[in-house]
Design a protein around this nucleic acid. Structure first.
Lengths: 334, 334
DNA sequence: TTGTACGCGTTATCAA
DNA sequence: TTGATAACGCGTACAA
């Protein structure tokens, strides 16, 4: 009832081992033999059982994604990127969502590793920077690639964008538009990128010779309500900013909402900018000027690093893009 | 190096089979023996290999989610609900994202089933209603539970909300607020729910004795831009609606954006309502009045049906909730 | 209530 | 370049 390698070997008139060789693209298989086997595989619709493969061999043909992020959009893009790369190699992705605050996170990862024996693991922030997790995986000798790690950059292979440069680029863009008082909404401090983006903001102000006004920086936590609160605090200043740059798009959306509610016109009364972290900036609020992160590509490349023949510690940087839309524009323009 | 059942049996001083009995919670294990085994399992941190289990037994301890939806929020909620239920039973969820338009969708599902031999499959719209997929799974004798299926409701177990009643409830709510001209934005026609929600709208108008004006119904496709376009068409009518009810929240957000852009005040100039289909209504645009769908619960219950001891065809209905926020309100209220 | 022997479908080892 | 045979770690069937 189930098609096995044995059926294929019988159909092709070769041994089981030879079929296995063809499946695994090993050397030393006669051209003609290979063809016969491939035909038999196709004819019988044979698909090797992952369970048997991983039990017998050193590999499981599965890689796992350890991803917890407040934005489902982010998580989903990661899953899509990894899936795309997996498909190319006939691998499977295990993508169970995790709660980063769960007491049992470590236990769950341990259980995942022991039960499914993945060939590798991909980590996203903030788990990328959990020492206990990294230690566990090192001890278990699991291959790891991290996306946007914030610490111990040389420890594993990784893919990332230059968040500091991105923060600086957007800030420089706002300065070029004529803004001198630019509000900044910091993200959740448990994410290293929050600090990096803020550092970029400070860099750009510095480079332009604009004195930093600490009243213009507010702390948020990557959520819409925190963006609303920070924006209201900023606009309540005696000398309010003419532009607001939020560390992500949910908070930027909060800024837009406040501006709308107050009857302000964009970008005349206020310029708003953010990052593509959720689905907002790309599809739901297409007016938002953002730093577009190549999320799917980050994930795809991470999977590529994981599936590379040799284990590496390569750090692969990907370019970001500054996408200008009508939430920013010349100061005072009509 | 790898802890196996053998190590546990040696440590506990019993046979391998007895350990297996304890792991699988079988009957006929002495209380004392059970304790000794459980202690050994804990001491050695033993976790059975999924590969070995599924190879040896009839089960794989894995269930798969076949989910493709334009909203990552929806997909993610499904994953979380199923994960929660799986955790309770020590099962694993396989949650590879699929493209519903992919030529190879059938082939990919077939390959998933043959390679991983899941104990069951959960389907979400619109794949719930693909005859070829249903036929394939029936032929492979895979247990299936569908979430919000639109057709052949008796074919498999399923979980759902009453979308027609939901559409009617929201429409009745708007009517109760005093609205008589209510615009409706239909969703993507490839989703059965689109028609169901619209039917509810028509039902409620009918029940209130309000004549249906076909000019007030516009077709969208569940995206923000389509909501913008539909709203602009509605507001351009000689007698524009005083309320707009969109079949999902992305289109409702489009309506809100148009209203903002035109300087209209909500809900005085226009009431806007939608559904909780994406992350918008729940976290990003908290002002939106919506039908809240219990997405995670739908997924959780679907997994529960899949993991039930006996295969069932139960149709489990879950309640929706009408959440009123400040995008709707009394007509003309200040 | 417990244990023994076998087999699941594949890869690894080693010989041909 | 190919093939025979022994693992892999667990559940199943049956015996004790």
């Amino acid at each position: 009832m189930r098609v096995t390698i044995k059926d294929v070997s019988r159909d092709a008139g070769v041994s089981i081992k030879t079929v296995s060789r063809v499946l695994n693209k090993e050397k030393y298989v006669g051209e003609e033999t290979r063809k016969r086997v491939e035909e038999a595989v196709a004819r019988l619709h044979f698909r090797p059982s992952i369970a048997a493969r991983s039990l017998a061999g050193r590999r499981s043909y599965q890689i796992a994604l350890i991803c917890d992020n407040p934005s489902p959009f982010y998580v989903y893009e990661m899953q899509l990127g990894i899936r795309d790369r997996c498909l190319e190699d006939g691998m499977r992705m295990i993508a169970q969502p995790y709660d980063r605050d769960s007491e049992s996170l470590l236990e769950e990862i341990e259980s995942l590793v022991d039960q499914t024996h993945p060939d590798g693991l991909i980590l996203t922030p903030p788990v990328t920077d959990y020492p206990a997790v990294l230690a566990l995986l090192a001890e278990r000798q699991v291959r790891v690639v991290r996306i946007q790690p914030g610490t111990e950059l040389g420890l594993t292979a990784s893919t990332f964008i230059d968040n500091e440069a991105a923060g600086a680029a957007m800030t420089a863009h706002l300065i070029a538009l004529g803004h001198r008082r630019i509000g900044f909404i910091v993200g959740d401090p448990s994410y290293v990128v929050s600090g990096q983006r803020w550092a970029g903001y400070l860099d750009a102000l510095d480079a332009a010779g604009i004195a930093v006004d600490s009243a213009l920086t507010r702390e948020g936590d990557f959520t819409f309500p925190s963006g609303v609160a920070a924006t209201e605090a900023l606009l309540a200043l005696d000398r309010p900013p003419t532009a607001i740059f939020a560390s992500n798009d949910a908070m930027a959306a909060g800024a837009l909402a406040v501006a709308h509610r107050r009857g302000m016109r964009l970008p005349d009364d206020l310029s708003v900018a953010g990052f593509d972290d959720t689905t907002l900036a790309t599809s739901v609020w297409p007016a938002l000027t953002t730093i577009r992160q190549p999320m799917r590509a980050l994930a795809y490349q991470a999977a590529a690093l994981l599936l590379a023949a040799e284990e590496t510690r390569e750090r692969r940087e990907l370019p970001f893009e500054l996408v200008v839309r009508d939430s920013t524009g010349p100061v005072g323009a009509g």
